[in-house]
Design a protein around this nucleic acid. Sequence first.
RNA 1: GGGCCCGUAGCUCAGUAUGGAUAGAGUGUUGGACUUCUAAUCCAAUGGUCAAGGGAUCGAAGCCCUUCGGGCCCGCCA
Length: 610
Amino acid sequence: MVYNTLLQQVQDVIQHSIHNNIMQEQVEFVVEPAQRGYGDVSSNVAFLLSKRLRQSPAQIASRIVDGCHTSSEGLIKSIQAHPSGYINAYADWDKLTQIILTASTQDGYGSMTSDQSCIVEHTSVNPNKALHIGHARNVIVGDVISRILKKAGYTVKVLNYIDDLGLQVADIVLGFKHLKYDMESPLGVKFDAYCGDTVYVNTNIQYETHPELLDIRNRILYNIEQGDTDDARMAEQITRQVLAAQLETCWNLGVSYDILNFESHIVLSGMWHEIFDRLKSMKITKFETKGENTGCWVINDKVLVRSNGTATYMAKDIPYAAWKVGIIPDPFKYVEYEGQPGSTLYQTTLQDGADMSFNVDMVITVIDSRQSNLQNIITNILADMGSKKYIHLGYEAVTLSRKTATGMGIDTDGQAQMSGRRGIYVGVDAVYKALYDNAHHETSKRNPKLDSHALHLISHALSVATLRYEMIRQDLGRAITFDMDTSTRLDGDTAPYILYSYARACRILERVPNFDHNCTPNLNEQKERELLRLLSMYPLVIRDATSNLSPKVVARYCHDLAVAFNAFYESCTIIGSGKYESGRLYLTEAFSIVMYNALSVLGIDAPHKM
RNA sequence: GGGCCCGUAGCUCAGUAUGGAUAGAGUGUUGGACUUCUAAUCCAAUGGUCAAGGGAUCGAAGCCCUUCGGGCCCGCCA
């Protein structure tokens, strides 16, 4: 860690000076990258000591600085006391430049080592409809979190939970059976979209005029849960087909999984009874004999098991969560699910298959914050049962902008909440298509000689990058208002802006593929320093993103890096700059390597040309 | 009624974890830069009582309390 080394050295030098000249006690203080114009590293230690020593921060800063001794082997060139009270250190950039260039171009730069392992569950969309843009945030946040953790050295297993039982599935079965929908989707329409847009929505409309259908739905639901019935077989056939279509969408965005967990397997495995017995014996749940919940098993006034003996939605989540944290034995075997590009995907089975081990240190469940209450209860139940591994990673939902909603013929006062049941949503596939067409148009305009395959690859990369970046660049606690027009933008704080800077660097390196890596780089311009500084910060970015489980940290870093490179590119000639050329090419190469690496943590593949 | 999230430039957002130096980007508007490594770029100007009030602090956008505004959750639905 290049920058960390510098920070550490400054910290040590200040610590020594305080110890020798000011006081014996240890003091906690912060050493951080400096703001622009104040050197390279700053410390606020003088402020902290001000009260205790009854002196002004400026006085203390001078005393500390006077006692600082920097060795010629270190990375610090000088340390100064600023009148404000800050202590600012200036790095020895001749040394630092060489170190940064060497480190950042090495394999695995930014990676951390860890013996920890974790599960990340995300996506988990009911298999009765296509993914909408709200689901996309879940999918992409989850995918990026798993990539960040891998970069941080964790062993990561990515799970996708398929709720192939339940009311939404019964709705679809009823639609096909009783409302006579064709089992084939129309030509050119994906099966998931057909189920969600046509069958599911229209079935729900029918309930309003034909309430007798609700009884039929309940019977279907019962049959599905029993397994080995015609309805169950039909449900399986449909949900499998929808799942395949949904996975196609996810895979297209560069998202992959390790395990598919089926709710039907969880139910048939009998895990629920095991958990329920434990909840009862540990007195975590109690049986109500009076009040409005009479005859129910409850946890803190929340019904777990209804008076008719069936489990609620919350209850159904508990066995899976308990299995994830490993407090009940694994009843499943695993077989391959065919078709995932790049890595092997497994699915649970109750028949023959391989065994797997899921003994992990941390379990992250990506679900939007509307489910925070429920997730808190589950977290507490698991804690009561002895596991503190469970983390609910929440994020605010995606709504449609008024303009986009109106454009779809949705009547709204302001933003519109999406609803699969009512058919109010923007599908992921449709957004991808719009982004792709846009990227294709712009790319072919700029590269008229490009063949159609190359054009396709670039357009695909650009559209996936754009969608991914839109879904993670904001804080998880902030709701995203999705707008079709602003999302297809190409300038400013967008993926195309970032990718453009990378493509620029690639073109330069293509023109001069060989240069002297052993040169003494002559990189003293301010723009060059700024770029070097950012390159050296990459490991700290990965560390921050990991400890905060925050995708946006990496996204912002990529953007900052692109800004720094574009500034360097504009102000410094690279090719043909004589004694500067090798150093600048080296810097360009280091930038391209780190940028490619950082983008890959976001699941973004950067094209060499666009 | 209880709980969670948000409120920073006209608009979209960083910065709040760990309080410190002139509060930063993008977009918009206005004006500039392609004979020169891709102008999907860059430069400049413009734009702020950090929702409001109080508190603790030498020092608050950040911490504590209160209020206001916006979103979401609180079912023997899932």
